[in-house]
Design a protein around this nucleic acid. Structure first.
Lengths: 229, 229
DNA sequence: GGGAACACGTGAGTC
DNA sequence: TGACTCACGTGTTCC
């Protein structure tokens, strides 16, 4: 425990009281005024001390909450904890941004096929799992064509997320393929099939379209309504 | 600026040096050993002081980063800042949890229809905007039936997000209705139409299904692959 | 003047 | 031992 220096102040006040009692000509070393001033000074020091203690408690209280939120050991020092908090906030911000962006179709056509062979669990060791996602112009037969592609490749759809806004669509699928029929190289089959799917789309859109600017504006306005939600 | 108490230590070391130079019988008040010890003591105090200063700087550096991330005024005090950080981390955690939950179909059938009449901007003052979302068993004709419902109600789809995993599907749509044909009460039309849609689903599913546990497991396994992504 | 917030140097404890 | 963290009381500054 640290010595309280307020005692030192008190003592120096005492010595001062003996030497220079200038306010009155009293015989007593301490006048009432001195006592009052002394009390006030002590009270001031005490208040200051306690306010500072409360401030420290307030700060440490929130730090303990952050320790809990980040499931940090109580032995993690303050600076490291705060560094982790900074990192976590950044991550979470980025994550929400990505989710809201990735879930909407992009303006440009895109195709992505990934295989999860390495990640497949024991239940699925006889199957290969692919994650397929693509953005393109929307058209009535798109979904049907996609289903036929997957059917012809003997792939089962485990998960599908189809997002359409205005004339653009973004489709994400998780599909399973039997290892008897497919290997890792099937990624290319899928990619090529999707490429032809998108080419068919752009052809039909090109022929049927009158102008490009209108759809863009329409989508922009539709977007306003979604973001408002 | 605060007085450096190391000076006091230094001076008390000096006085001590005069009174008790016990290590040697030298005439001089300070021996070489004393000087070395004195240097070491001073260096120790200085190191301690500087280490503590670096520690404070480290902590304050991360706090300034957090101030920036939360776009807080530089005059926001530490305790308030940390309180806001706690709140923000909680919010972001909750948000990402909700997004990942809300975007997946629930086990129970649900219907929700909201109108955005109050939020509609100037471009759409002649239209009413509805947000429609529902969860139910998936079936091949569901989408077609849904489109027919919207067509019969003369509603245009601005946005659609259709998520299917295993045998469950979650559909979110933002639709626009002309004010000439529709008012706020059209919410009920939509709700009833969706209700009949879901009833049709449950009937066909009930008749065609053999057992319930298998689908659940299948979905569970499909979910594993998505979460791995 | 007085409360609030901060930086500082220091003693104590830990590894 | 030394390097490090923490709580503490204090001096200072700003409203």
């Amino acid at each position: 425990m640290q010595p309280e220096i307020s005692d030192h102040i008190f003592y120096s006040f005492l010595t001062g009281g003996f030497c220079a009692s200038t306010t009155t000509s009293s015989f007593y070393p301490f006048t009432i005024e001195d006592t009052i001033a002394q009390d006030k000074a002590l009270a001031s020091v005490r208040n200051h001390k306690e306010a500072e203690r409360r401030r420290r408690e307030r700060i440490n209280y929130h730090l303990s909450k952050l320790r809990y939120l980040l499931s940090c050991n109580s032995k993690t020092d303050k600076a490291t904890l705060l560094a982790k908090v900074v990192q976590r906030v950044k991550e979470l911000k980025q994550q929400t941004l990505e989710i809201s962006n990735e879930s909407l179709p992009s303006e440009t056509d895109e195709i992505s096929v990934l295989n999860f062979e390495d990640c497949s669990n024991d239940n699925d060791d006889h199957r290969i799992i692919f994650k397929v996602s693509f953005c393109c112009e929307d058209r009535p037969d798109l979904l049907q064509d996609l289903m036929e592609i997957l059917k012809s490749l003997r792939m089962e759809t485990l998960f599908a997320d189809l997002t359409t806004i205005g004339d653009r669509t973004r489709n994400v699928l998780v599909v399973a393929a039997d290892k008897g029929h497919h290997g890792v190289e099937s990624v290319h089959f899928l990619q090529n099939a999707l490429k032809s799917l998108l080419e068919r789309s752009s052809k039909s859109v090109m022929m049927g379209r009158s102008g490009g600017g209108g759809e863009m504006l329409k989508r922009r306005r539709a977007l306003d309504h979604i973001i408002m939600v």
